[in-house]
Design a binder for these strands. Sequence first.
DNA 1: AAGTCGGGGTG
DNA 2: CACCCAGACTT
Length: 356
Amino acid sequence: MHFSARLLQWFAQNGRTLPWRQTKDPYIVWITEIILQQTRVYQGMEYFFRFTEAFPDVASLAAAPLEKVLRLWQGLGYYSRARNLHQAARDIMEQRNGKLPENYQEWLEVKGVGPYTAAAISSIAYKEPVAALDGNVYRVLARLFAIDEKTDSSRGKKVFEEVAAELVDPIDPGGFNQAMMDFGATVCKPAAPLCKQCIFNRECLAFLQQQVGKYPLKKARKTARTRHFNYFYFFFENQDGRPMFFVQQRKKNDIWKNLFELPLIETEDELKPEVLSDLPEWKNWFADGCDYVLDGSPLFFRHQLTHQQIHARFFKVKLEPDKAVTFTSYFLLVDHHKFEKMPKSRLTLLFLKKIL
DNA sequence: AAGTCGGGGTG
DNA sequence: CACCCAGACTT
């Protein structure tokens, strides 16, 4: 029996039941594919529900302010996905009068949609016979055919694309692509794959050569760099005795762009509090002369990201209420109720949870 | 081609 | 701890 027929049969019996498979509405498929980029299906699940409920169509997404979109994305990571998705929705409303692309090439033009996502959407929603290659598919193909090409080189990608194009089912390309990914995620797993019960173990070259662990080939990854973030919880109590404090939005092309956080001084090393409050950034904030002594034992968190390790310290500084006047030219003044509605990183959420 | 963008699961 | 996840964009 042909490969795709066997795979689709396996899929019919063993495929996962996932909420986004209930529909082939291209908008819903689009949202789903963006959410699932570099994200495990289980992790993206609740975001799928929240997002499609809040924004059931392109028009509602385009009409929303970016900060509301980012707030829904809060905690999922790779926030450029949310920014690009939002911008793409606005582009589609303005340039295409709200009409979604209808094939692979058109989808490729959409912000945040690359080769994988364009293939996934057009095969699932429009039955276009294109293969979608994600990390699962690269792994399955690399093992099945013992492909000695790196999956993250341009030459290697071409090889994998050619192999996948040969295999994709022309009648049910969407089913084929999802089957490949399900198979990679549940059977042909990165570590401890289920080769014994794999339906392809009689022809899988990597298995026959007992080199399953060798595939897929990939370039070595760099180690994460370490950064030191010094955050300051500058607060005072309002007339009701409730804390007011200052926040700012990250603007630079760096992690967490467009998210909100406490005032920050980044340093090369972990500096002592008295050295920290002697830095130009600090001196600028307190140019009026009124200065404060930093708490010697701030809250400390080690926040591990894929490419960075953040050493974060949070200093609590109680301000005199009149200091608030000069601070509002640097920062935004909020209370906890207001800050709750603003998009934040996991690290900032962790701090909030700790002090409340 | 290499670097960068998060957060969390897995063995 | 290292590796990877329904990748894409920038340099």
